[in-house]
Write a protein that binds this DNA or RNA. Structure first.
Lengths: 143, 143
DNA sequence: TATACTAACGCAAGTAGGTTGCATTTACGT
DNA sequence: ACGTAAATGCAACCTACTTGCGTTAGTATA
């Protein structure tokens, strides 16, 4: 997977996804690429502020919605009363959220396709997507 | 499982959970028990309005928080920007949410304990709880 | 059963996440 | 270089949810 932190690659990615290239969007892409965890809108706004680049909150909210529509970002909800976002090109995985320190790690998706096939068979319900998050105590917080 | 729609049983349940019995709480309990799906606060407020029983929104928000603390209700999040609630005494299950008609059905939890054991083994992360919801098309909407 | 203490309630004000209408600016195909 | 549709900034707005405070009402104890 190529490195989107590079400005040129950010442009390529946006063009591929049929999104108009603007300074705000390029800068936001750098942030998404550098993020180790799903980010929320207030974090994006802070990133802009810290770098003295002005961007209206409304613009950022519109940006993430467009990026989700275009398939660049995935919406993620940890039940915090706000939406988080993460680049789609990271493959299917779920999150382990430490309720003690807030640390977030990922775990590969290995069981869900079986589960979804079972749901189709038992209930006739066709699963298009799912959300699965685990809450608990990370290794570091156990000691 | 006894029938909480009955006023007497609602009282017993609240007393068992060490919650002070008030008219607002009894009436809310009836609603939770009669609900076929997880409900949100605006639905609870409508239920009171429809029955000409006055209850301040702040009271309802406080009520659900107390009920969650006491273990009577479980918080559920479908990523709608609001919290849903469901009685805890319904056992572990997940929801199938039809993105076409909004219908919600339940499916038993059969795969998660294996998954969680694996996570402990692979990552050392101790899972305390999880949230899993499926989005797709229900049988009825496929025809 | 009367009392007193704590917790629930109603009301109003406030906070945070998110959306929308409108005027202006900007990206980008021609 | 130009024209157009889309992106941006700003302000106003909406909904979910919380909090402070004065009043009311359960409930434990005497």
């Amino acid at each position: 997977m190529f490195n989107l932190i590079n400005n040129h690659d950010c442009k390529t990615e946006l063009k591929k996804m049929e999104v108009k290239i603007t300074p705000v969007r390029l800068f936001a892409m750098k942030f998404f690429e550098s993020a180790k965890q799903p980010v929320d809108v207030s974090e994006i706004i802070s990133y802009f502020k810290n770098n003295n680049i002005k961007a209206d909150p409304a613009t950022i909210f519109r940006l993430v919605n467009v990026f989700v529509e275009k398939g660049i970002l995935k919406r993620i909800d940890f039940g915090e009363g706000k939406t988080r976002y993460e680049l789609s090109n990271k493959g299917d995985h779920h999150h382990l959220i430490c309720t003690n320190c807030g640390h977030i790690e990922s775990v590969e998706d290995s069981h869900m396709s079986n589960f979804e096939a079972e749901i189709k068979k038992d209930k006739g319900f066709i699963v298009k997507s799912h959300s699965l998050e685990f809450f608990g105590i990370c290794l570091n917080c156990q000691s």
